[in-house]
Design a protein around this nucleic acid. Sequence first.
DNA 1: CTGGTAGTTGAAGTCAACTTCAAGTCAAGG
DNA 2: CCTTGACTTGAAGTTGACTTCAACTACCAG
Lengths: 158, 158
Amino acid sequence: MHTTDLLPVGEIARRSGFAESAVRYYERLGLLSASRTSGGQRRFERSTLRRLAFIRAARNIGLSLEEVAAALNSLPAGRTPTRTDWSRLSRGWRRRLDDEIEALVALRDGLDSCIGCGCLSLDRCAISNPADAARTDGPGAAYLPSRLRRETGRPAER
Amino acid sequence: MHTTDLLPVGEIARRSGFAESAVRYYERLGLLSASRTSGGQRRFERSTLRRLAFIRAARNIGLSLEEVAAALNSLPAGRTPTRTDWSRLSRGWRRRLDDEIEALVALRDGLDSCIGCGCLSLDRCAISNPADAARTDGPGAAYLPSRLRRETGRPAER
DNA sequence: CTGGTAGTTGAAGTCAACTTCAAGTCAAGG
DNA sequence: CCTTGACTTGAAGTTGACTTCAACTACCAG
């Protein structure tokens, strides 16, 4: 046994559930790394599969690839990450999910009070309020996490 | 008083919180309609503001513009929609939000059981499971509403 | 009538996260 | 050695929801 546990891209794709193109894309972004054969083909370590599982989990939670990259970069360099390392990373997700749930619940409750009144008022309705209006209107408005929110339609002020 | 309550695009944009470009875009898609001055400029009826409020609300709930268009097309033709018409449209959103909330809660609960174990197993972890694996694995997996889910990364089978 | 603000168009650009394609090259069983 | 399937690359395409641009034209207060 020598190089037997270095996997080519097709194998990684099949076993991770990602498309080959996605795996290559992730490598280009630096989310994954691979050694190369003398002929230039990628060979991934087995631990790449766990990394990909992490990526999928993070994407399911709602992280962008940029955030995923940041998270992966915070892993200890050098050694292969342990369970504890992975667990530490995913701990912060709990809060994120809580926020999103809270936002949706608030939106639903706002909707409940809107249904039947058919208001959809531009300045009063909690559901149709643009974000900035909601912000100044205090509680009862403004809910969606950024990931879910459709912003004002105007270019973000900077 | 004759044409006084026909509003130009800038006014509509300002009062709805959408960018002018978005308003024009919506008109092109058929979500809004406008008459024209002799010089070819758009003039929107005041009721357009309510329509835009509906659009924003729908987008906040998570509808695509295509869905919004379908919803708007289901409004009674001819007469200006009443409160009741708008209210009927938004009633279905409740269910949609419930589903999304449920999905997120399930995901969070799955996460809770994953944190600390650091598993992120490709075939067992509820959070990192690709959608199809989750589907066949019965309860305990598969959660995110399509709007939130990151699919398998493979081209959708057709 | 004039100037300045507001409006017009179609085409192209943007963003994220990939996928698809073409034109090859590599790896390995027979 | 040969064939076949797996792999390589860079560039371009995809989707949705817009935005930006350039080159004009309209509207209206003074």
